[in-house]
Design a protein around this nucleic acid. Structure first.
Length: 229
DNA sequence: AACTTAACAGTTAC
DNA sequence: GGTAACTGTTAAGT
């Protein structure tokens, strides 16, 4: 039975049973996932941030838009998609195609594989230039995502709040009392989101006016391309 | 054929 | 008096 739904680097880990009942339980305290010492890890994160700022090319035009509730918007952040040749990822009515891996992205991808034991063929990159940039509540429930592979979220740069809300507490069907789960995603941190997190829980990165520096987030995924249709 | 919505604006809560 | 936290959209895609 799959127990671990969310695994955060520092102290976030819960039973899915507890999740369904709305009783979050911390079942594990995981130490720094990095093999290196803290100081060294910090320096490496700094280095990776600088490298990515140089290497990553962000989407423009169609691929930088979403369609929500019948309208087209420019996304309130920058976004890029890298991965194995030919892979595409569609959300909010727009299909993104993978650019070829850069050396730094391959390095981070392999480091995450070493830490987690999972392999990934795609990464969605979101860059939030400051606290005004954000992403709204959503689930990563796209059909092309391999349900057996968690999504690995790597954070670099400014720390930002990250909020989970249970679907039964939103809008009209808010009959249940389940507290949102809030955490800070720090520079150099890794968050693993296993199933069925993305079935029951929406997540967002809300506006934080006091944050003045940029954050880069990389979500490594395993895509199973659907060639039919 | 229901069901959902990675966006925003507007309102309420603090 | 500001930020933060909820609500309601809306027509197209799944």
């Amino acid at each position: 039975m799959e127990k671990c739904v969310i695994q955060g680097q520092n102290n976030h880990s819960w039973h899915s049973d507890a999740l369904k009942k709305g009783q979050w339980k911390n079942i594990e305290l995981e130490k720094d996932v990095s093999i290196k010492g803290e100081e060294e890890a910090e320096e490496e994160a700094d280095h990776l941030f600088i490298q990515l700022e140089d290497e990553v090319m962000y989407s423009t035009g169609e691929e930088a838009k979403v369609k929500v509730f019948g309208k087209v918007y420019n996304i309130p952040r920058k976004q890029a998609t890298y991965g194995d040749a030919g892979l595409t990822y569609t959300y909010s009515g727009v299909t993104r195609s993978a650019c070829t891996w850069t050396p730094t992205l391959e390095y981070i991808r392999d480091a995450v594989t070493k830490t987690t034991g999972y392999t990934f063929n795609f990464v969605l990159i979101n860059r939030y230039k400051d606290g005004q940039d954000h992403i709204g509540e959503h689930r990563d429930d796209e059909k092309e995502l391999d349900p057996l592979c968690p999504i690995a979220s790597v954070s670099l740069g400014a720390a930002r709040d990250f909020i989970f809300r249970h679907r039964d507490t939103r809008g009209k069907q808010n009959c249940r009392h389940i507290e949102p789960v809030k955490m800070e995603l720090a520079h150099g941190s890794l968050l693993l989101m296993n199933q069925p997190t993305n079935t029951y829980w929406y997540h967002s990165l809300p506006v934080r006016k006091k944050v003045l520096l940029p954050r880069i987030n990389l979500t490594f995924r395993r895509i199973v391309q659907d060639n039919k249709k």
